[in-house]
Simulated assay, not measured.
Amino acid sequence: MNDKQRALCKAHDYDFSDLSAVLINCTLKPSGQLSHTEALLDVPKSIMEANQVNVTVVRAVDFDLPPGVYPDMTEHGFGKDDWPELRKRVMAAEVLVLGTPIWLGEESSVCRRLIERLYGESGDLNAQGQYIYYGKVAGTIITGNEDGVKHCAMSILYALQHLGYTIPPQADAGWIGEAGPGASYADDGSGGPENDFTQRNATFMTWNLMHMARLLKDAGGIPAHGNQRSEWDAGCRFDHPNPDYR
């Protein structure tokens, strides 16, 4: 690199210090056990923290999250539900990153359950009458020893944008080792931490999440016109070609 390129890499005037992020690891392993997904999640965590983003990392499996698509499943027959506690962290953050291993070609069952619990809040509205996740951004990190990184990313990112999250460019990164039994990401000699493709994508994803969160926060979120559930329910049709169809 020349001097100008080095200067651009080392210095910038972006301020992310008022942003927060929650990184949810959907490993099947409880805290205290090695998680290869968390090892790769450490890349965006480190970059965000280096730029003064307030980062929280949690493992979903440490929480009692019964199945369901309601905000509190104790109201629907379950004795305990930790989702209301975890929900507070999710709602307080401008950035959400879901990390998951690949099992049988799909994201983990823990990840899918978490998405279902996120869905349980998607009917709520923000102060502008939009769906509650409008103005927040999301990405995903995926690890495994079998094919499926892009397939899992498509499934996860589709679900999150459908709920209202904004997905910036290059919002996923992953690593898969040799197909079948073998070294996982954080194992000695796996090649994962040295893999340029994975590390580049994880870095680009992180910066794109921070940039998009910065843009949305400075703009006050997604502009509130044409997407307000509260106004639609009140009868506004936002230039729909047949406003009297109902």
Rank of each mutant, 00 (worst) to 15 (best):
L40D: 01
D64A: 14
L34R: 11
L41D: 02
S20W: 02
T27S: 15
V55Q: 04
L23I: 07
N25S: 13
A50G: 13
V58H: 06
L34C: 06
L41A: 01
V53W: 01
K29C: 02
L28V: 08
A50W: 12
T27G: 00
F63A: 11
N25Y: 02
T74L: 07
L40N: 00
P44R: 09
E49K: 09
V55G: 03
V55R: 02
T27E: 04
V58N: 05
I47E: 03
T27A: 02
N54D: 15
K45A: 15
Q33A: 12
R59N: 08
Q33E: 13
C26R: 06
V61L: 14
A21C: 02
L40P: 00
Q33G: 08
M48C: 10
Y70V: 15
V57T: 14
M48G: 02
K29G: 05
T56M: 11
S35T: 01
A39R: 01
V22D: 00
N25I: 10
V69M: 15
P44K: 05
A60C: 03
Q52E: 15
I47D: 03
Q33N: 07
F63Q: 09
L34H: 09
I47M: 03
Q52V: 05
E75V: 08
V43L: 10
K45Q: 14
L40Y: 02
A39Q: 04
V55F: 08
P66W: 10
T56L: 15
E38H: 08
